[in-house]
């Protein structure tokens, strides 16, 4: 839908207008905000999840941990101590039931977090480790990292993950406004309806950005869905080769083509949102 392109251009516009801006890339399974901006990622901080390590000298062979693990990850072999076999989710249920303190709090890396600053724009990003599954936990850690320094910023823009999983809720928790990026294609309208249904549950303020308004589909249908969820349409953009050119050149439209319609649309969007929410 072009969610990241909108986030990157909106954040760049806000920063260019003098607002101290944080841009948080919560799409930790496909985090490419820094790539879009041509910013390097340096000095990543690893985020870890607890994983049990069993201490044979303390284990009483009660097997309470084996019964507690609902993922059936723990195996007691015929000889020797408990083995972690499957995919541990880090729930720590085994620690809660062990009567002998026979489990050591080992750790496993689930992802890496970075912070990169360029002028008034600071990008916070995270990347899930290859093979790891804890996207929601990593997004939580990323959001906490931003929350700890939130005072340093006038505005925080969050690029959420795609798909309506719990990871989206983790990314948008606590937001003042959700900008829903969609397009007038049937898949676009279908996803819009579902996302707005989710936002209805949270009663959060929102508006719609229609990307690629000239794609074949139905603007009429899109507007009906928006009306049904009482969501105003903020602005939109036509299909734009210059935006493709931007992602190829790793720079936002507001920098690369400041006179383009796309750049002016994003600058206007930034001005509207700043007028509404910033002092």
């Amino acid at each position: 839908m072009g969610k990241t392109a909108v986030a990157v251009n909106l954040a760049s516009s806000l920063a260019a207008a003098g607002h101290r801006t944080a841009l948080v890339d919560c799409d930790v399974e496909a985090s490419d905000v820094a790539v879009f901006l041509g910013l390097p990622l340096r000095e990543g901080v690893q985020v870890r999840v607890v994983q049990p390590e069993f201490l044979p000298e303390k284990c009483t062979d009660c097997q309470a941990c084996v019964q507690a693990c609902r993922r059936h990850c723990l195996l007691r072999p015929a000889e020797g101590t408990i083995l972690l076999m499957g995919e541990c989710s880090g729930c720590e249920a085994c620690f809660l039931v062990c009567p002998a303190e026979a489990i050591h709090r080992g750790q496993r890396t689930m992802g890496t977090l970075w912070t990169t600053t360029a002028g008034r724009l600071t990008v916070f990003s995270g990347a899930l480790e290859a093979g790891a599954k804890e996207s929601a936990l990593l997004i939580h850690a990323l959001r906490q990292r931003v929350a700890a320094v939130a005072e340093q910023f006038d505005v925080i823009i969050v690029d959420t993950p795609s798909g309506l999983r719990h990871t989206v809720i983790e990314a948008l928790k606590g937001s003042a406004h959700v900008l829903v990026v969609t397009e007038p294609t049937w898949p676009g309208i279908h996803d819009l309806d579902r996302l707005l249904s989710l936002l209805d549950m949270f009663a959060v303020r929102r508006s719609i950005f229609i990307n690629r308004v000239d794609l074949p589909g139905s603007i009429q249908e899109l507007k009906e869905v928006a009306d049904r969820h009482a969501t105003p349409i903020e602005t939109g953009l036509r299909m734009d080769d210059q935006l493709m050119e931007c992602s190829r050149n790793c720079a936002p439209a507001v920098q690369l083509f400041p006179q383009s319609l796309a750049a002016r649309t994003f600058t206007g969007l930034a001005r509207n949102l700043a007028g509404e929410y910033l002092p």
Binding site: V28, E29, A30, D32, V35, L128, S135, M244, S247, R248
Partner: peptide, 25 residues
């Protein structure tokens, strides 16, 4: 993405087609 559903969809499959477009992101 690369997380839980992506892993579940590929494990034990015979072949993976990886679709991309020629942009850096």
């Amino acid at each position: 993405g690369t997380g839980s559903p992506a892993i579940a969809s590929m494990k034990g499959a015979d072949y993976v087609i990886l679709v991309t477009e020629p942009t850096p992101p």
